[in-house]
Design a protein around this nucleic acid. Structure first.
Length: 279
DNA sequence: GCTATTTGACCCGT
DNA sequence: ACGGGTCAAATAGC
């Protein structure tokens, strides 16, 4: 199978999942369980992209697409090798400037009309005027860098005045479990199997809020083929025909949900890929 | 007083 | 040597 197409599909899936999570955050009636589900789907897409080592061959979107309304585009993914300690041995007294030069295993960029609200907690640690850049670049790292050693970081740079455009470059993945605190997956063990069935829809028919409703909203640009979204391979492998109804909705039995939640919560996605046969 | 942000200094990679 | 990434003291906000 063509890796580039896989990447494109994963990127699109991640964008839609991100959008779904943002919509849910906007609507308080969404249960924390559903929100967590969306969050895990989003994470799964990101991890899949991470694991796909040929992802750097993925070609960026054409810049002209960035003019689309309500848009947030992943314009590239790359690069670099394993991180390396580049810190010299400093005395405790003279540690200024002692740091690890950024060399993450993954980085990707997104461009949006507003600074991206991605649901994670970031702490700004620097700002720098960049040569030949109209606006200075801001540096953020995960607020849980210290307490959970989360290595995720990002850079935000305004790249255009009118309309305002911000480029956010992410480095590394969050290893902190902060988002689990307020939205842990909890299945009511007292519920009957029928009650605990979960309905997943891969049909892009949910209401599409306007930018006014979600001013920060990003990462959604329906494609002509969005109505024929494939089920993720995990679900294809997990679901039997009786689990589907005519609307492309998927009703999962408790056992199937267990399989999927185990997959999504699995720290070792290699195992998950093997479990479901990989790509 | 605690936490987050700002900002100049410092170091690394090219 | 230079540009960019990070540190950490100073400052701001609560």
């Amino acid at each position: 199978m063509d890796h580039r197409k896989i990447c494109q599909e994963l990127v699109r899936g991640r964008e839609v999942a991100n959008r779904l999570r943002q919509v849910m955050n906007e609507h308080d009636e969404s249960s924390s369980f559903v929100q967590t589900l969306a969050k895990n789907v989003l994470r799964s897409f990101s991890n899949s992209l991470f694991l796909l080592d040929k992802y750097p061959t993925y070609e960026p979107y054409d810049v002209s697409q960035m003019q689309q309304k309500d848009s947030c585009f992943i314009i590239s993914s790359t690069k670099s090798e394993d991180s390396q300690e580049s810190c010299k041995s400093f005395t405790r007294k003279n540690r200024r400037g002692c740091y690890k030069r950024k060399r993450t295993t993954q980085e990707w960029e997104e461009v949006s009309e507003t600074p991206i609200v991605d649901g994670n907690q970031w702490r700004k640690y620097g700002q720098k005027k960049i040569l030949e850049a109209k606006y200075s670049r801001s540096y953020y790292r995960c607020s849980h860098k210290n307490d959970q050693n989360c290595q995720a970081s990002k850079q935000v740079q305004r790249i255009q005045e009118e309309p305002p455009l911000y480029k956010t470059t992410y480095f590394g993945h969050h290893t902190c479990n902060n988002d689990l605190l307020n939205s842990e997956i909890i299945l009511d063990s007292n519920s009957s199997p029928a009650e605990t069935s979960i309905l997943l829809s891969f049909n892009n028919t949910f209401p599409n809020p306007t930018k006014q409703e979600c001013p920060f909203l990003s990462s959604f640009h329906p494609s002509p083929s969005s109505d024929c979204y494939m089920h993720p391979p995990e679900l294809e492998a997990t679901l039997d025909d009786s689990s589907r109804n005519n609307n492309n909705d998927v009703t999962l039995s408790p056992r199937q949900w267990d399989d999927i939640s185990t997959l999504l919560d699995s720290a070792d996605l290699d195992d998950a890929f093997h479990h479901f046969g990989g790509f």
